Computed example of a mutant assay.
Amino acid sequence: MLLPSAYAAFRQVLSPELRGLFWRTLGFTLLLIGLLWYGLTQLLAYIVTAHPVSADYPVVNTALVFLAGAGLLVGLFYILPVTSALVAGFFLDEAALAVERTDFPADPPGQPISLGKSIAYGLRFAGLALLVNLAALMLILVPGVNIFAFFAANAYLLSREYFEMAAGRFRPMAEAARLRRENRGTILAAGAILAGLVLIPIVNLLIPLFGIAFMVHLHKRIAARRLPAL
């Protein structure tokens, strides 16, 4: 169930049917990361200008801002799941519908979640992911523990939120959450795959679209397994 769903999602992300959506989700993800990096570096520059480390050697302050900006690129790696959540919330219905029409043409499509509701859901996910990943970032100086904490936290978060967003097109959110809990082992393993991809540079930029496609397939398989045999 897990590997066929993952394979189908990878195939679909790179398919001609989703190519346009792929470039839009990728562009939006890079835009959010770029805006966040720019805002934080400007804030740092303002702080250093207002409270310079060395009034006599301005080059020291410039170097500090540069090094801090470079360090922020590493820090942004830890909050990629946050931007992923926002992007997924924005493109949820379009991506899920494309997957359903392509790979499940005989099944009725899911009911679209309103844009406002899906973005609000994405913002809730993003806020939770931000808190969890900031906590993991605080462990950055503890070898081994930091990566494990980052991986475990995001395996849970990504599995929970992506599955419930996909399942929520076919059932009330409370029922989607109950279905996730009933299949927590399988869905958590799916989250571990997503969390593992987050650790791979460049590939991690595919998470929003891949995560939606992956969980649409997984939900379809789980739902079919629950149906009584005829």
Rank of each mutant, 00 (worst) to 15 (best):
A85I: 02
P105L: 07
G144S: 06
A120V: 05
L14W: 12
I47R: 11
P201F: 01
D107V: 06
L21C: 11
F150Y: 14
L131P: 07
L44K: 03
A177D: 08
S84M: 04
L3C: 06
I113Y: 05
S84E: 15
A189S: 13
L227R: 15
L205Y: 06
G75S: 11
E175A: 15
H51C: 12
F150H: 12
A45K: 09
F148G: 09
V216D: 04
L21M: 10
A195C: 08
E100W: 11
M138F: 14
G168D: 03
L188P: 00
P172Q: 14
E100K: 04
T83E: 04
I79F: 05
G168K: 04
H219E: 15
A106S: 13
T186C: 06
F214I: 11
P143Q: 10
G211A: 15
M138A: 15
P172H: 09
I33E: 10
L139R: 02
L3K: 11
V198G: 03
D103C: 03
L64Y: 07
S54C: 11
M138I: 06
I47D: 07
L134E: 07
L158M: 15
Y156S: 08
L123F: 11
A224W: 00
R124A: 05
G127I: 09
Y78E: 01
L76H: 08
D56T: 11
Y57R: 15
P4N: 11
A55G: 11
Y162G: 10
L44W: 05
A174F: 00
A8T: 08
L43W: 08
F90T: 07
E161I: 04
G191C: 12
L73C: 05
L2W: 06
R226E: 11
G69R: 09
T41P: 03
V60P: 03
R160K: 15
A55H: 04
T102Q: 15
L199A: 15
I202H: 05
